[in-house]
Design a protein around this nucleic acid. Structure first.
Length: 548
DNA sequence: GAGTTTGAAACT
DNA sequence: CAGTTTCAAACTC
């Protein structure tokens, strides 16, 4: 089909590849990417605005939308490393004829530039940004929803799934629906299957087997499929890529709790949980793929993780870092930043007493001196060059860490709100005391910035290192427990009793086991934050308002 | 790795 | 809107 790829590519680079006849506005690949700068800029602005608008719209939806726009195709490829599940480099396309400017291209469809791809004549890069933006505009013109997620929420929920159905589909529905004819919607050709969702009324597929209760689908997800592992990975990717949202699976605390609190109740929810537990029969980490022997309770306890792990992949840090932890971290960094600037503040206060009068006298003297040469040297030269300027600006301007607000560096609204009071104060002080103009202090401001940045980054690095350490510990524990689990199950099967440790081979379940890993981000935040939030009422009250 | 199959996207 | 073609990924061998 793709005969003469290279010749095609070569021709594409030198000669028109597409017929000039265009009933519908099309991308012009022929005119040396010839979009007039102005038109290109306009197109770019339009396209960018359109995409941003879509992103903004998407962010308002209940769908957990990834930062990058994704198409089902891009979702299909493992963005996460198969071995360890860690984020992996963006998928690389192999486009040959689309120049990566059509939705055929995963990168383009994902709204990202090609980077390290194997594509030919790629225009989906910075060098061809104008063309790219035009293509985006055209694509949006053709289909305003082109870059929007194709999987939306559906009325389906975990409660709707019947207890007797063995498979477990993610919550969601393909907005447009698939049109499969030969794949039975059980292969990755099918967008619904790719996204690990059931086909819906939106689909126009033929001979669909991707529905709740489908034997074929059940077989596929029950471990007796040769490609079960890949399907597992696919499901994990689907869960991870944000198309569905994190709440689609059993990750809620209540569910976790109930899952552990066997035997199950009789409510619909409990039944659903029970059903989820039954999914263990396709334990991805056990090649046998058979349900572990033992009583139902034991099987459910042991199997729940396996079953859910097949469909839910949760990063190692999933339960370590919570939203409030991020907030805490930000508070910490604000405190660290303030502390970093404090020496400058202290020094200023100390030295200001001794030098303020002298400086002002000198300045006044220079200003009052009507001699041109003196005037030039006395103020601008002294203060705008070298160490003198640094010294003075440091002394007179950096009386408070909040002065960094006066620099050109952009700050978050939260931080601005935090420091607005101080800014007003400083401004008034500066005006009242006849302090020199701001530009005279830029250098020292930068100096403080540098110190603050250093401290903040150091602190942040430390936190990240601790986070990594935690994850490693967790990972090692998973590994050892998985080995134990596998060893015991291969010999005599898991024996669960009240006191025995439940072998958990699933990272998903392990991460849910708060008893085993009572990890909280708070645990490794430095004590500084504790002080700042408990002893320093001012900082605490202000940082609480940080818009995180 | 090459060839085939598949279904979405693009086009008529 | 329906039919056809193009395209790149998924799949098979």
């Amino acid at each position: 089909m793709e005969s003469g790829v290279q010749s095609n590519a070569a021709a594409a680079a030198t000669a028109p590849e597409f017929p000039p006849k265009k009933l519908v506005r099309q991308l012009d690949f022929t005119a040396n990417f010839g979009t007039p700068p102005a038109a290109a800029a306009q197109s770019q602005a339009h396209a960018t605005a359109a995409m941003q608008s879509q992103l903004a719209t998407a962010s308002r939806t209940s769908i957990s939308m990834p930062l990058k726009i994704e198409s089902p195709r891009s979702r299909s490829r493992p963005v996460y490393d198969v071995k360890d599940g860690t984020p992996k480099k963006q998928k690389q396309c192999n486009c040959k004829h689309s120049r990566c400017l059509k939705l055929y291209c995963e990168c383009f469809a994902s709204g990202v530039h090609c980077d390290g791809c194997n594509c030919v004549n790629c225009c989906n890069n910075v060098e061809n940004e104008a063309v790219r933006q035009e293509a985006v505009g055209l694509t949006l013109e053709r289909n305003p929803n082109a870059f929007r997620p194709k999987i939306g929420n559906s009325p389906h929920s975990i409660r709707d799934i019947r207890e007797d159905s063995a498979e477990f589909a993610l919550v969601g529905k393909h907005n447009k629906g698939c049109h499969c004819k030969k794949s039975n919607c059980l292969k990755k050709y099918c967008e619904c299957f790719q996204a690990n969702i059931l086909c819906s009324e939106n689909c126009k597929c033929i001979d669909c087997k991707n529905f709740d209760g489908s034997e074929e689908r059940r077989a596929l997800f029950h471990g007796d499929h040769p490609n079960n592992l890949s399907y597992m990975q696919q499901a994990a990717n689907a869960a991870l890529n944000g198309a569905i949202g994190s709440s689609g699976y059993v990750s809620s605390p209540s569910l976790k709790k109930k899952l552990k609190g066997l035997p199950f109740g009789t409510s619909a929810k409990d039944q659903a949980i029970h059903r989820v537990a039954q999914l263990n029969q396709a334990n991805p980490l056990k090649t046998s793929g058979t349900a572990p022997p033992g009583n139902p309770v034991a099987r459910a306890v042991n199997s729940a993780p396996s079953g859910s792990s097949k469909l839910v992949y949760r990063p190692l840090l999933a339960d370590i870092v919570q939203p409030e932890d991020v907030k805490e971290l930000c508070k910490l960094l604000v405190v660290v930043s303030a502390e970093a600037a404090k020496p400058f503040s202290d020094r200023k206060i100390h030295e200001e007493k001794h030098k303020e009068k002298v400086d002002q006298t000198e300045s006044f003297h220079a200003l009052s001196n009507q001699d041109g040469d003196h005037n030039k040297k006395a103020l601008p030269d002294d203060r705008s060059s070298g160490t003198t300027a640094d010294k003075m600006s440091t002394e007179e301007f950096m009386s408070d860490s909040t002065d960094m607000q006066k620099g050109s560096r952009p700050m978050s609204p939260g931080t601005l709100a935090l420091m607005c009071d101080e800014q007003d104060t400083m401004l008034m002080t500066s005006q009242n005391t006849g302090a020199p103009p701001r530009f005279l202090y830029d250098q020292s401001v930068t100096e403080v910035y540098a110190e603050q940045e250093r401290c903040v980054l150091t602190e942040f690095r430390d936190c990240l290192q601790k986070l990594i350490t935690r994850a490693k510990v967790k990972e090692e524990k998973y590994a050892s427990m998985a080995m134990k689990s596998e060893a015991s199950s291969s010999q005599q099967g898991p024996v669960i009793n009240g006191n025995a440790t439940v072998p958990m081979s699933s990272p998903a379940e392990l991460s849910r086991s708060s008893n085993t890993f009572p990890i909280s981000f708070h645990n490794f935040l430095p004590p500084k934050l504790g002080r700042s939030t408990t002893e320093n009422g001012n900082i605490d009250s202000k940082t609480e308002n940080l818009d995180l």
